[in-house]
């Protein structure tokens, strides 16, 4: 009888399965976590899915774009500023009143022009009010930190709302932008 035979004999013995009572105890102790089987992350699923067929159209699109750009580059209208003296460039040929207007949020457009074009007054706005709206919290399961310790990852979804008010014209502009924050909560294994 050699060691290999002993290993084989030991393998042939099967430990007794846990009793029904014991399994019931485990089930009670697990509670809700026992019924959670799998947590899917839709975003990661999308990332892992094969690329759609339209991806193959991109080379054609880029080819077209390159051809158009090349054509524009060679046209006399565009080529001229590059060939002439830099002092005669389009920007420098603008009136100084348009270029030097520091108050205007748009370069080269004066505040008066901005008022006319946009239909909104440029003065008289109140300070914007910023509000953070919490949407949902998603448990993304356990991730491993670089240190090797596990942590549970929660992703918080917010909408940031910025409201500009102009009382004189009773104008209100509301801007919303989504934002996410990720929190890692260290887990104690033992």
């Amino acid at each position: 009888m050699n060691e290999f035979d002993i290993e084989k004999e030991l393998h042939s013995l099967t430990p007794v399965a846990p009793s029904e009572d014991f399994c019931e105890r485990i089930e009670n102790a697990l509670g809700d976590s026992g019924t959670v089987a799998m947590c899917h992350m839709p975003q990661s699923d999308q990332m892992e899915s094969p690329p759609p067929a339209r991806v193959y159209r991109y080379p054609l699109f880029f080819g077209f774009a390159a051809l158009i750009l090349f054509g524009f580059f060679l046209s006399p209208v565009i080529v001229k500023p590059f060939l002439n003296d830099p002092q005669d460039s389009v920007v420098n040929s603008q009136p100084s009143s348009m270029v030097d207007n520091d108050d205007s949020p748009l370069y080269g457009v004066s505040l008066e022009e901005l008022d006319d074009f946009s239909g909104f007054p440029s003065d008289g706005w109140l300070d914007p009010t910023i509000e953070e709206r919490f949407l949902k919290r998603v448990d993304e399961g356990v991730v491993n930190r670089k240190s090797g310790t596990p942590a549970r990852q929660y992703r918080y979804h917010y909408i940031d709302e910025t409201l500009w008010t102009h009382p004189a014209t009773q104008t209100r502009i509301l801007s919303t932008s989504p934002r996410q924050e990720v929190f890692l909560i260290d887990l104690e294994l033992y």
């Binding site: 846990p18 014991f22 105890r25 485990i26 102790a29 697990l30 976590s33 026992g34 959670v36 089987a37 799998m38 947590c39 399961g141 356990v142 596990p150 549970r152 887990l187 294994l189 033992y190």
Partner: peptide, 16 residues
């Protein structure tokens, strides 16, 4: 077994 299994399953069980 109960204590150890429940602890670990609560952390990693969702993965299956």
């Amino acid at each position: 077994v109960q204590e150890a299994f429940v602890r670990i399953w609560r952390i990693y069980g969702h993965t299956g």
